[in-house]
Measured scan of single mutants.
Amino acid sequence: MTEYKLVVVGAGGVGKSALTIQLIQNHFVDEYDPTIEDSYRKQVVIDGETCLLDILDTAGQEEYSAMRDQYMRTGEGFLCVFAINNTKSFEDIHHYREQIKRVKDSEDVPMVLVGNKCDLPSRTVDTKQAQDLARSYGIPFIETSAKTRQGVDDAFYTLVREIRKHKEKMSKDGKKKKKKSKTKCVIM
């Protein structure tokens, strides 16, 4: 069974824990209790493949930012979460993405942009803004509501699919490099 290491990042209060708990335990946590770091595991079937999701729910508070490099190193894919009623959390996505790329030393890291709290009427981040940002990053965008469960499975499952595509691409690139290195030079 394939294991996928997913990391949920975003500013404090955007609903990272609520999304994760909704996926794992099928219930909505409405009281806000700032996370330092929590880890969850769940076995699911995605596109006919049974897999184990190892999900790291991270601290959004700035005082825990020193811990970010460590979990970013171990993560295979990242859910970059903002709240649709919090423009600052949307603007912060850029910083999370840049930090992930720096730590992973790669421009090509599996990510999904997630606009959470889409059940709320007080939207300050337009869907088109988020779609445009995701398009500019070359990553999928999904709106979710941890409260109603809308888009929750889709967000995590899409990230797994992005990781699969990335692994497939990397193995193809690896095979191309191996083929090239088999060419021999004969000096007579």
Rank of each mutant, 00 (worst) to 15 (best):
K165T: 05
G151Y: 06
K176S: 13
G174K: 15
Y157K: 12
S145L: 01
K128F: 10
G138W: 00
Q131H: 12
L159V: 08
D126N: 09
V186G: 15
Q129A: 12
V186R: 00
V160Q: 02
V152D: 02
Y157F: 09
F156N: 01
L133I: 09
D153N: 07
E162L: 02
L159N: 00
D153R: 03
D132L: 07
G174S: 14
V152L: 14
Q129K: 14
D132W: 04
K167W: 02
R135W: 04
Y157Q: 14
D132F: 03
H166K: 06
D153A: 12
S136G: 11
K167C: 04
K172I: 15
Y137D: 07
T158N: 10
K167P: 01
F156G: 00
Y157N: 15
L159Q: 00
S145G: 05
Y137C: 10
T127F: 09
D154F: 05
Y157A: 14
K128G: 13
A130H: 06
D132S: 09
K167Q: 12
A130E: 08
K167H: 13
E168R: 09
L133P: 01
L133C: 08
R149S: 13
M188F: 01
Q129G: 13
D132Q: 08
K169A: 06
K165R: 11
A134D: 01
A130C: 11
K178A: 09
Q150V: 11
E162K: 06
A155Y: 00
L133Y: 07
Y137T: 04
T127D: 14
F156K: 00
I139T: 02
C185W: 01
K165Q: 08
Y157V: 14
H166I: 06
D153V: 09
K178Y: 09
K177C: 14
K169R: 10
K178R: 07
E162N: 07
Q131A: 13
E162S: 04
D153Y: 04
D132P: 02
K167L: 03
Y137I: 13
E162F: 01
R164C: 05
A130W: 14
K180A: 08
K178W: 03
D132R: 05
Q131I: 08
V152I: 12
R164N: 10
Y137N: 05
L159K: 00
D126M: 06
D132A: 09
K172G: 13
T127A: 11
V160A: 04
D126W: 04
K176L: 12
A155K: 00
C185G: 15
A130S: 05
V125R: 03
K165W: 01
V152H: 02
V152K: 01
K169M: 15
Q131F: 07
V152G: 03
T127H: 11
D173N: 06
I187V: 15
D132C: 05
R135K: 14
I187R: 15
Q131P: 03
D154N: 11
A130P: 07
L133M: 15
Q131D: 12
I142D: 00
S136P: 01
K172V: 14
A155R: 00
A155I: 07
Q129N: 15
K167T: 12
K176V: 02
K167A: 08
K128P: 09
K128R: 11
Y157R: 12
L159E: 01
H166Q: 09
K178C: 10
K182G: 09
K169G: 06
S181L: 04
K176W: 04
S145E: 05
R164S: 05
V152R: 01
A155P: 04
A130I: 14
D153Q: 11
D126Y: 07
G151K: 03
V152T: 07
D154Y: 08
R135G: 08
D126P: 04
K128D: 13
A146L: 00
D126G: 10
S181V: 07
M188K: 15
I142G: 03
E162Q: 10
R149L: 02
S136L: 08
R135Q: 13
V160S: 02
Q129I: 11
K167Y: 05
K175G: 13
Y137E: 03
E162T: 06
G138C: 05
H166V: 08
E162M: 06
H166L: 11
K172Y: 14
L159R: 00
E162W: 01
A155C: 11
K169H: 14
Q131M: 09
V125K: 01
H166E: 03
K167E: 08
E162Y: 01
D154M: 09
L133N: 03
R135S: 09
K128Y: 09
K167F: 03
V160I: 12
K128N: 13
H166P: 02
K177S: 14
G151N: 14
R135N: 15
H166A: 12
L133T: 03
R135L: 10
Y157M: 14
L159A: 06
T158G: 06
K167R: 12
S145D: 14
K172E: 05
K167S: 12
T183N: 14
D132V: 04
K178I: 12
D126Q: 05
I139D: 00
T127L: 08
K184P: 07
V152W: 06
Q129S: 10
Y137M: 11
K178D: 15
K165A: 09
K167D: 11
G151W: 02
A130L: 14
Y137S: 09
T127Y: 10
Q129Y: 08
F156Q: 02
K167G: 11
A155H: 00
E162D: 02
K176C: 12
K182L: 02
D153M: 10
T183L: 01
K180M: 09
Q129H: 12
D126F: 10
S136C: 12
M188V: 08
K128E: 14
T127W: 09
D154A: 11
F156M: 13
K169N: 12
D153S: 08
V125Q: 15
Q131G: 09
V186A: 14
V152Y: 05
Y157C: 13
F156D: 00
V152S: 03
Q131N: 05
K167M: 08
V160H: 02
K165C: 01
D154E: 15
K128A: 12
M188I: 03
D126K: 07
D132I: 06
S136K: 11
A155F: 00
A130T: 04
Q131Y: 10
M188G: 15
H166R: 11
K175S: 13
V125W: 07
T158A: 11
A155M: 04
F141G: 01
K178L: 05
T144F: 00
R135F: 04
E162G: 02
A134S: 07
A146Y: 00
V160Y: 03
A130V: 11
D126T: 06
K128C: 10
V152M: 13
F156V: 14
R149V: 07
K184E: 15
Q129C: 05
A130R: 02
D126S: 09
D173L: 05
C185V: 01
D153E: 15
F156S: 01
V152E: 01
G151S: 05
R135V: 07
K165M: 09
T158I: 04
A134V: 05
